[in-house]
Simulated scan of single mutants.
Amino acid sequence: MASPIIMIIKLLLDPDVSKKVILQMAWSQVKAIGIGKVVAALLGALTVGVSSFIRIPQIRKLLINSEQERISVANGLSLSSLSLDTLNSLVHASFNYQNKIPFIQYGESFLLGIQNAIIILLVNFYRSVDAGEVDKLEGLSCSDKLSTILGSLAKPLAVMIGSVIFFTKLAPSNVIAFLEILNIPISILAKFPQIKANYKLKTAKHLSGVVLKANVVGSLIRVYTSFTDYSTKKQRKKSTTDETILLAGYTTSLILNSILLGQSIVYDKLGKKEVEDEKKNE
């Protein structure tokens, strides 16, 4: 059966059907379901859609500008944070896939996991370049560049492929279910290494400002959708334990994402002030 939204769009495109009547019917349905619930569902779908490219600005920071700048970005990113985040995405996607949950419910994690994996590979490569373990790419032919990149990434690629095979094919469902329970606390813990690294470096230039802002907005959306589910179940006098846990987790995630964004803003201002002071001293 076609989606109600698709059906409405088809009716709106039909020249023999009154657009006003269709829109009135649609509005009546929205009010019957609940405006808050409809908005929450639309925001959830929007979050999944935006996730398909939300890490691209961070990936670009590792691909554009000079090689030295890429190395600087790679050294500023926390592999611990990225790895925990990617593990969470893999577990969450595996759990939902095994339980035949609609893709819209876990597509966000699946797409973020792929983008995180790309970032991890780039960070590993440029750290290897910085350590002198592989030759720099400047001046090399395309085939030599590809050979150098693949050679340096053999180990992390093997770990990633092995992890995907284990969690999707080998791991017992009860293990996946247990790790899924730990999804929120692990995602929260994943933020601390990057916060610590930013504090130590006194800069957050290695992080994409677009990604930081998007993470805060995404967390806000998840808090809203979780609160909507919580309120709905509470009104129906049903158990709200799961929703309370999710709401607490997403709220904590919002706080930590806000701290990362705050670090970016504060350190950026401090950096500009230092540059201005140096110019005045000159």
Rank of each mutant, 00 (worst) to 15 (best):
E243F: 06
V223R: 04
N174H: 13
V223F: 07
N65W: 05
I35T: 13
R55G: 04
T251R: 05
I265Y: 10
A197C: 02
K100L: 13
F53Y: 13
G271S: 07
G162T: 10
R222I: 00
L42W: 04
A204E: 08
L121K: 08
K191L: 10
A214I: 11
R55F: 11
A171W: 08
V91P: 07
E180A: 10
K238A: 13
Y267H: 04
Q263V: 02
T241K: 14
H206A: 08
S173I: 15
L87K: 02
I59E: 13
H92T: 13
D16K: 12
R55A: 05
S3A: 12
A154M: 08
Y230R: 04
K136W: 01
I33T: 15
S51P: 01
L82Q: 14
L42V: 14
Q58A: 10
I161W: 06
L207F: 04
L256N: 00
G107D: 09
F192G: 01
D277V: 10
A45K: 05
N174W: 15
I118K: 02
V216W: 01
L182G: 04
L201R: 14
L254N: 02
F167E: 05
L82K: 02
K279N: 10
K202P: 04
K205F: 02
S264T: 05
I195F: 00
Y230G: 03
S128I: 00
G107S: 06
T203H: 03
I6R: 13
P57R: 04
K10H: 10
G151Q: 06
K234L: 14
S226F: 01
K155T: 05
V164F: 09
I8Q: 08
S143H: 07
I56H: 03
G132H: 05
D144Y: 03
T168F: 15
V266D: 11
V159F: 11
P156C: 07
P4L: 11
A40I: 04
C142Q: 14
G209V: 09
K31M: 12
S258W: 00
A158I: 14
E243W: 00
G76F: 06
A177K: 13
I104Y: 03
L207E: 11
S83F: 06
V217N: 04
I265H: 07
I119P: 03
Y106R: 07
Y250E: 13
D268E: 14
R236L: 15
N75P: 07
T168P: 01
P4C: 08
E108T: 10
S239T: 00
P193Y: 08
S253A: 11
L207G: 00
S141P: 06
R236Y: 01
A74K: 03
I195Q: 07
V123Y: 08
N99L: 00
F110D: 04
L84Y: 06
L146A: 15
K169C: 12
P57G: 10
K200W: 00
G151A: 10
I119Y: 05
R70W: 01
L179W: 09
K202L: 07
A41I: 08
I149C: 06
K155D: 03
K269N: 11
L179Q: 05
R55Y: 13
F167T: 08
L261S: 08
F178G: 09
V159M: 11
L79A: 05
H206P: 00
S81V: 01
G249F: 02
L13N: 14
L146N: 09
I221T: 06
I245D: 09
I195C: 02
